[in-house]
Amino acid sequence: MSNKYVEMGMRSPVNLTWEVTQACNLRCTHCLSSSGEPSKNELSTAEALDLVEQLHSAGVFQINFGGGEPFIRPDFEEILAACHARGIMTCISTNGTLITPELVARLASNRLVAIQVSLDGAVRGTCDAVRGKGVFDAAIKAVKLLAVTKIPTSINTVLTTHNASEVPAMHDLATSLGVSLRVSRFRPSGRGADNWEALRPTPTQLLEFSDWLGKSGDVRTGDSFFSLTAQERQGLGLNLCGAAKLTCCVSPSGHMYPCAFLQSDHFEAGDLRTSSFQEIWDNAGIYASFRNLRIHSCEDCTRYDQCHGGCPAVAWHLKNDINGGDPECLERCVTTIADNQRSATA
């Protein structure tokens, strides 16, 4: 299947996450990049536009813009326009609080825009406990503005122990608003690491979510390379981590990493101020190690063909070892629950 071709090595990523700013007007407790104040050394407009040209030359199909809050950056629409002029699809992850009717009208004039609005609960209290007071209402208002346009819009939810029971209701909410639902894994990076124990879903919740996801054909998950439904993922035959193979991450200051959840010195692939995008993609040692990564300890697992060892970022953050397999994988959820039951009855 497609894994075979991916493992042969791609000349450039299919898509990449570009965190255009660290600045954010919110302080979400699960934020993967601890956003808030802007980074000291963020790419200038000229540097950002040069990067767009490099990505175009490399053949990158899609850029997933995140942050921080991308719309805080004054030149963000200029960066988008440069992408669109080169036929690059842009997917914007926003908290929705800065979305206005005028902005929506400008975005809707281009067919190469998709937007994900973050919302972390089906009800105000659950969402605002993570994202801040008033954010639920602002996000819903943004989704309503976007839903009447042709812009493909989704509600993006990070699964936590507090909203796990609300995911079906969030699906209903998204459907009632005329948009789709995308659910992302909560990972222990950024402020998410600080609040990991308070927010992490239980093994039972993860298994229940997996079961529900399999029955909910139109719900997408966004792990690693694309937002895909369970059926699409199966049909495409892509079920391995896409970091450094199909995707990568560019930080606000122009440093490249395997993925957005591994933005530390240990995983830095290069600096776009000193090397070109293509040079870093082709030659970075850390990318080579991800391309060669095989989770041998998982190879005997019955689920290995479905996940190939899961998410290296979760393995790193929880066990400091990307070779050890995903400690939060579904198989480990099953064994954890069984162990807990045995302990309780012993």
Binding site: M8, G9, V14, F61, S227
Partner: peptide, 21 residues
């Protein structure tokens, strides 16, 4: 859009998005 890869052509469809190897 389509691009050349070592194995052949990689097609991308932004309506999904979808890929075809």
């Amino acid at each position: 859009r389509a691009r050349q890869e070592g194995f052949g052509l990689l097609f991308y469809d932004n309506r999904g998005p979808r890929l075809l190897f």
